[in-house]
Design a protein around this nucleic acid. Sequence first.
RNA 1: GCGCUCGUGGCUCAAUUGGAUAGAGCAUCUGACUUCGGAUCAGAGGGUUGGGGGUUCGAGUCCCUCCGAGCGCGCCA
Length: 537
Amino acid sequence: MISEAIKNILSQKLEGLGIKVLPKEISLERPANRDHGDWSSNVALVTAKEAGRDARGLAQEIVDFINENLPYGVEEVSSAGPGFINFRTSRALAYEVLLKVLTSKENSYGSSQLGEGRSVNVEFVSANPTGPLHAGHARGACYGDSVGNLLSYVGYDVHREFYMNDRGLQMNVFGRSLEARKNNEPVPDDGYGGDYVSDWANQMPDGLALEEIIDWGCDYAKRDQQETLSQMGVEFDTWFSEKSMIESGGIEKILTSLEEQGVSYKRDGATWLASEKFGDDKDRVLIKSDGEFTYLTPDIAYHKHKFERSDWLINVWGADHHGYIARMKAAMQALGFDPEELTVQVTQLVKLLRGGQEVKLSKRQGDIIELRSIIEEIGADSTRFMYLLQSVDSKQTFDLELAASQAMDNPVYYVQMAHARLCSIERNANEKGFEFKPLPVDELDVLVHPREIEIIRGLEILPETIELAARELAPHKIVTWVRDFSNAIHGFHHDCYVVGDGVRKELTNARLNLVVASRIGLKVGLDLLGVTAPDKM
RNA sequence: GCGCUCGUGGCUCAAUUGGAUAGAGCAUCUGACUUCGGAUCAGAGGGUUGGGGGUUCGAGUCCCUCCGAGCGCGCCA
C-alpha cells in the first residue's frame, strides 16, 4: 500500500530527527482540495512544538529528505500552507488500482479483514408483534441491514436479529382488540384501533380462547412484518422470542446472577438493580412490589443472551428509546460485560412529505403509515436509498413524490442510471466486436482524460470509504460515494466515447477496462446499500 | 427543571472526527445534443456554519454560555 510506504518514510525521517512519533500517530489523509495532491500529512504541524521547531521549516526538511528517497509510486512531495506535507502519486499507481478492481473476485473489491472474524449481533427493527410495520420502522430497517452488509464486507461475522416482545401487557391488549373486532364490537378504550385489526380479525378462525388469539395474532403479525421486510430485501437470521426466553427460565437466571454479583437489592417490597453505580441516573426496579418484573428485566436477560453468543452487540433504537441506553449499559456492566461492546445507534425521526406537504397521519388507520404502502408507492430501491441518504444522527425529511419520480432530481434513478449506462456501453462494445479483457498497466496509460482520472480516483478511494463507513456504522457515507461516483460516470459518458468513429482501438479497449471496473465498483457500493444495480432501466 | 440528540446557502443534506479556499443535489439563471440511453453534461449567483466567548499553528467539529428544535425523564411497555 502506498499509504503505508509514505507513513514509513515519514516516521523514518522523524526518528532520524529524534522526534518521537508512534506510527499510528502519523496521520495521512486525502486532501479535500485536489491541488494539494493525493495524500497529505500534518506530522510537521503536530510535532513542531514539542521539537522546538517551526512547522514550515520542519516540513521542508522532511520534504527534502523524501525527495532524495522517493518511494515507489510517489511522484512529487512538497510542503505547503502552515506546514503540511503533500504527496502526489503517479499515474501508474492509478492504473494499478484499475487492474486490481478488474481482477478482484466478484463482490470483493474493497473488502477487508478489519473485523478479524469477530462476531457481531446487529439487532434492529424489533417492532412489537401487534401490527404491520409502519414508517417509523423503516429507517432502522434500512440502516440496520446496511450496517450488517458493511460489517460483513470488512470481515465481521454478522448476525441479524429481530427481538419480538411477544408477551406482556401489550399482547393482551392486542388479543382483546382482535377478539372485539372479530365479534364486531368496538376495541377496548386502550386497544389497537387501526383498520388492520379488523382485517386480521376477519381472517382469524372462530372459537379461539384469548391465549390462542394472542398466539394467532402474534404469528400473523410476524409473518406480515417478515413479508414487508423481505420486499426490501431485509432478512433476519433470528427472530428472537421474548416469550420463549422467559419460558425457558431466562428471568430466574438473570435475577440469580445479578444477586450473586451483589448488584441487586430489595427495598420497599421491590427488587432493584444498583444501576446508578454503573453510570445510570438512578437505580431501576427489576421486580415490582406486586411480584411482576418490569420490562427492563427480560431485556437484560436478552442482552446477556446475546453477549453469550456474540463478541459485539449493536442495537438500533429509535430516538424515543435513547433514555434507555445508560441503564442497559449499566446492567451489562453489572453483569461483568464490557459496556463498550454494546453499541447503541439511535435513529432520529423521519418526516415524510408528499408534494411538499407533510404526510398527515390518519386517525382512522390508527395513526400509522404502513411501510408496505411506502414501498408500493416509491419502490424498494428508492425506499432503501432515501432512508440511507442521511446520517441517522440527524432528523430527516424527504418527499415521497420525489422519491417515486423517475426524473433526474431523484438520486436513486441518477445512480441506477449510471450503472445501466455502463452496462449499455459494454453491450454496445460487444455488438461492435470489442471483447473486454484486462489490460496490463502500460496499455492503460492512454487513459488521461480528466473524466477518466476522476473515475479511477473514485475507485481508488472506495476501499477506504467502505472502511470508514464500517468503522462509524455510517452507510450514508457509501451513499455519498455512490452519488459522487455516478456523477463521474455520467461525465465520462458525456465526454468520452468508448466506441465510435473517432476512437482508436487502443483507447476503446482501455476505456472498456474503465467501464467494466466502474460497473464493478458501483455495484459494490449499491450492494452495500441493498439497492439493486440494474443492467437496463 | 434535568438528560440525550441536533442547529450548516431559499429547500434537502455532506464535510476524511481538529486541517488548507465549508462541498453536493434541488430550486433559479445561462450554455451544450449526427454516436454508447440528454433520465445527461458544463457554467453562474447564493454562507458571519443559531448568537457570544474560549482553547491553538488551525474550529462547522473541542470547552463554557445563551437561544431554538426533537425526544426522553414511571414499581408503563
